[in-house]
């Protein structure tokens, strides 16, 4: 699969060119380029303060860049709020998951985007719980997620199951790609595996791309197609995950090595 996209370049889902963002006199991003291809998991790797958060916040519409261009499907866009990004088919899974604990999985998946009955009942705002449950169940099945029940509050779920609900919600509503901010930072080994599998199925079954932020090298290398390393607000390079090693990435991240060289032009 990786060789396929290397040989015949497809149009870019997202192309960010020369993004710059200052907070006061701190330069968080200093002319960063970043692109995302269809059906790929593109990991963002870097130390604290490297600019990962600022970059995804710009892509998610939560932060506006001081300069630089964002292109979606080759067309330039301006996101002035997260709402704009969502409208463009970009869903973000935040680190805090943004789940409403006392609500069940279906209610969380449809949070703020409830399904109403057709006709007059729907006009009056009556929600079609059965349809929401059915759609949630179908999506959970497609993505191979097992949760105890659709009707109990998500606060009774394990960390991994809660993460899964948040990812499924993003996959249901995301039309283009998902942004995942540290999806497995708080999870145990087994649950991490589940969530990473889920991420791959999101790519393979739903055909969505994923921008993955993570500190965890093993996890990055296991699921990612490409890795971009940021350091001090600049892009060190972008490399195919199969060509990357932990030593290489850590070296690039800390500035000890400057060797992404040729691979960076991918």
């Amino acid at each position: 699969m990786t060789s396929e996209w290397q040989s015949e370049p497809r149009p870019l889902l997202l192309n960010a060119i020369g993004l710059r963002k200052d907070y006061g006199h701190v330069r968080a991003l200093d002319g960063v380029d970043f692109d995302l291809r269809p059906r790929e998991i593109h990991a963002l790797f870097g130390d604290n303060g490297a600019g990962k958060s600022t970059l995804i916040k710009i892509i998610a519409g939560a932060v506006q860049p001081d300069s630089g261009i964002l292109e979606i499907d080759g067309r330039e866009v301006t996101f002035s709020s997260p709402h704009d990004a969502r409208a463009a088919g970009i869903e973000t899974v935040y680190q805090d998951l943004a789940l409403a604990d006392p609500l069940n999985a279906a209610e969380n998946v449809f949070l703020g985007r409830e399904l109403c009955y057709p006709g007059i009942l729907g006009r009056l705002g009556f929600v079609d719980r059965r349809a929401m449950h059915a759609m949630t169940a179908a999506n959970l099945r497609d993505l191979g997620v097992n949760i105890p029940s659709l009707t109990v509050p998500v606060e009774t779920f394990s960390g991994g199951q809660r993460q899964a609900v948040a990812v499924v919600r993003a996959a249901v509503w995301g039309q283009r790609f998902l942004i995942m901010d540290e999806p497995v930072a708080a999870l145990g080994v087994q649950q991490t595996t589940h969530v990473l599998d889920l991420m791959q199925r999101t790519r393979d079954e739903k055909g969505l791309s994923v921008i993955l932020i993570s500190h965890n090298l093993t996890e990055v290398l296991r699921v990612a197609d490409r890795v971009t390393v940021l350091r001090l607000g600049r892009r060190v390079g972008t490399i195919a995950a199969k060509d990357a090693t932990a030593t290489l990435l850590v070296g690039a991240m800390t500035g000890a090595l400057n060797m992404l060289g040729e691979a960076a032009t991918l």
Binding site: P82, T92, Y94, A98, L99, D101, L103, L111, G112, R113
Partner: peptide
């Protein structure tokens, strides 16, 4: 009541 921020992020 459960999570106002998540509702806001969902565009409400």
């Amino acid at each position: 009541g459960a999570n106002a921020e998540s509702l806001r992020r969902a565009g409400v």
